[in-house]
């Protein structure tokens, strides 16, 4: 499915964001990418769809080397890679519907998209997805008038209408309250299961990651320092990823949370 080989990114400033990352994500597999701020999580997923140009190494999606593609080929491959952003990154002045349909831009010619004449099948799919994320009644509202959770749902619909095989998710819950965070994570993970998408979720919140995924990858200073199941995230491992801290205190609350007694809204 997705395979990263020695992926390296050195920024112009000389900062080495990624150094030789090897990672494999299988079909239908959801992985959480955790690590401290500045570890290179965002850079890693942006190197996959080349919003950031990797310095060396390869990213291979279903046998296609994305790092070697020209502009046209890259656009075609990007259609198969949905992306969900931290601050939603919706086009604020467009309607919810236009934002969702913008996920089809890679499939539709310029004039059709300019005149908003999307094929009926796309519009049907947009309605289906809006219904699925619970925003059907808001299709005609402007995106900037929505709450954080609603906007992220629009972001999810926009990524999924691309009909992707790979989903790149960058800190989906960083600007959301705890309850909405869980709802959004649950929705993303459910959708990935339904469609068997390979998914990389960047996430700050270790507890949230442990609640929803089966595989966690720890990134520290541009290197993978952990790759395993959530329950292997013992304090020693967390120290290796984040540095010294009293992890027991935090982990206690995770156990409570796992019991699904809806205390999230507290």
């Amino acid at each position: 499915m997705l395979k990263l080989e020695k992926l390296t990114k050195v920024y112009n400033t000389g900062d080495k964001a990624l150094s030789g990352v090897d990672l494999e994500v299988g079909k239908g597999q959801v992985i959480a990418l955790i690590g401290p701020s500045g570890a290179g999580k965002s850079t890693l997923i942006r190197c996959v769809n080349r919003l950031v140009q990797p310095t060396s190494g390869r990213a291979i999606l279903d046998g296609v080397d994305i790092t070697a593609l020209g502009a046209g080929g890259l656009r075609r491959e990007r259609r198969r890679m949905g992306m969900i952003f931290q601050e939603y990154a919706l086009v604020e002045r467009l309607s919810v519907m236009e934002n969702v349909l913008s996920g089809r831009l890679g499939y539709v010619g310029f004039w059709r998209s300019f005149l908003r004449k999307f094929p009926q099948s796309d519009v049907d799919e947009a309605y289906r997805l809006l219904d699925r994320v619970g925003l059907l009644h808001m299709a005609d509202k402007r995106a900037d008038a929505r709450s954080g959770g609603q906007r992220q749902r629009v972001g999810i619909a926009r990524a999924l209408i691309q009909d992707p095989t790979l989903l790149l998710v960058d800190e989906p819950t960083a600007s959301l309250d705890p309850k909405t965070s869980r709802e959004i994570m649950r929705l993303i993970v459910e959708m990935c299961r339904e469609r068997e998408l390979a998914t990389i979720i960047n996430i700050h919140d270790v507890n949230l990651a442990k609640m929803f995924v089966q595989r966690v990858v720890g990134l520290e200073a541009g290197r993978i320092v952990f790759d395993g199941a959530p329950d292997e995230l013992v304090p020693d491992v967390l120290t290796r990823i984040y540095g010294e801290e009293d992890w027991e205190a935090t982990i206690e609350t995770v156990d409570d949370a796992d019991e699904e007694n809806d205390e999230a809204g507290k």
Partner: peptide, 16 residues
């Protein structure tokens, strides 16, 4: 960036 990530062309990125 979000529009570019959908595989939109340069002109589409401008318009959207």
């Amino acid at each position: 960036e979000a529009i570019r990530a959908t595989g939109a062309s340069g002109w589409q990125v401008m318009v959207y």
